[in-house]
Write a protein that binds this DNA or RNA. Structure first.
Lengths: 185, 185
DNA sequence: CCATGTGAATGGATTCACAGCT
DNA sequence: AGCTGTGAATCCATTCACATGG
C-alpha cells in the first residue's frame, strides 16, 4: 500500500504519512510502498501495544455493563480482570459472565494482576472518590465516563468520555455547516 | 475575570485566551477583564447553542439506556424527543420514562420535531443501516457509539465515540509516561 | 496602573519537490 | 516507472510585546 492510499483512507496527505512513519525508521520500500501487516506489527511493538493490558472496571450501571459486554477489548489487547461496584445489591451478580465484586477487593486485584489502567463508570458524585481509590491502589491511568472533571497527580493520566461534550461537538459542526451554507449565498 | 485567570483554569496562556475571544469581537473591558456571565451568554448565542436541540436515540441496549437516563442533556440544551429500537421485545418497554418505539415511526418523529441530531447506540452490524435511515429521515448529524466507521454524504456530520479507541489513547499516554521516565534516567 | 486587542516575531507542523532505491 | 525518505519552503497557530482604553 502506498502512502497515498494510506492517506486517502485516513483523510491525510501522502507526505504527512511518510513524514510520520519515517519518524519510526524506514518502514517502507521505495517503489513498493508499505507492507501493512508488517507495518502494523512494528508500530504496535514500538508503541507498547504488543502485550495485553489488564484492566478493572468500577461501576456496574448501564455504562459499566456496556463496557464489560464489549467483545472488542480482548482483541485489541485489553483484558478485564475485575469488575467492581459499591452497591451491595449489584455485588455478587454477573455482568457479561463476570462476578461483580465489592470495592474492598479492588486493591488486592490491582496488585495481583499488576493493573495499570482503570475504567470508571460511576455517578459524578462518586467520581473523585473512586479515582482516588484507583490511584491509591496503584493504577497509572483512568478512563473516566463520569461527567465530572477529576483531579489527579500529574503522574496519572486521565482520559474522559463525556457524552454531553460529544453531543455539543456534533451540534457545533452541524450548526457550522448550516452557517457556511448561508454565508455562501 | 482576566484572561490570565481564564487561561489558568483551562491550561492555556493569557494571550491564547485573548486571541481566541477577540475573534468574536471585543468581549472584554481593558483594565477590567471579562464578565463571565455575560461572556458565556454571548458565546452561546454566537455559536447557536442558545436554543434547544431535539434529538432521537436509536438502539436501546446498555448504552442507549445510559444515554436516555442521562439527566445532564436537558440542562445543556438537548431534548430527547424519541427513542427507538428494532427489537420487538424492547419496543413498548420504557427507558427512563420514555416508551421505546419501532423504527417505522422514526421518520415521522424526526419530521414532526424537526430533529437534526441522531444518537446511534446499535451493534456494529446495524450501524450503517441505521445511519442511512437517520439520514434518509432528514438528520444532519449523527453521534455514533458503534465501533464501526460509518460513511455519509459530506453534508452530514458524524462524531464517533469508540470505547476501544479511548482506552488505546489512555494506554498510549501511560506507556509514554513510563517511557519518558526511563529515558530521563 | 491594569488588562484588553492586535500587529510582529517565533516555532512547529504541513506541504513541496526531488534524489535515490527497487 | 513507482514510491520512499528527507531537506527546503510554506503555512498556521501560539507567543511576545505594546499602544490604547478604562
Amino acid at each position: 500500500m502506498s502512502s497515498k492510499d494510506l492517506g486517502a483512507s485516513l483523510g491525510l496527505t501522502d507526505a504527512q504519512i511518510r513524514k510520520d512513519l519515517a519518524l519510526f525508521g524506514s518502514l517502507g520500500q521505495p517503489g513498493r510502498g508499505y507492507q501493512v501487516i508488517d507495518l502494523l506489527k512494528r508500530l504496535r511493538q514500538m508503541m507498547g501495544r504488543d502485550q495485553s493490558w489488564p484492566i478493572v472496571v468500577v461501576g456496574i450501571g448501564n455504562i459499566g455493563r456496556a463496557i464489560t459486554s464489549y467483545g472488542s477489548f480482548k482483541g485489541e489487547g485489553f483484558e478485564i480482570v475485575g469488575v467492581f461496584d459499591v452497591d451491595p445489591k449489584v455485588v455478587g451478580t454477573k455482568s457479561a459472565g463476570k462476578v461483580v465484586r465489592p470495592m474492598s477487593e479492588l486493591r488486592a486485584t490491582i496488585a495481583a494482576h499488576n493493573v495499570r489502567l482503570g475504567v470508571m463508570a460511576v455517578p459524578k458524585e462518586a467520581a473523585q472518590d473512586v479515582a482516588d481509590a484507583l490511584i491509591a491502589a496503584g493504577v497509572s491511568g483512568i478512563l473516566n465516563f463520569a461527567p465530572k472533571r477529576v483531579t489527579a497527580p500529574h503522574t496519572v493520566s486521565i482520559v474522559s468520555v463525556d457524552f454531553t461534550v460529544s453531543l455539543e461537538q456534533l451540534a457545533f459542526q452541524v450548526w457550522l455547516a448550516g452557517t457556511e451554507e448561508n454565508a455562501k449565498k
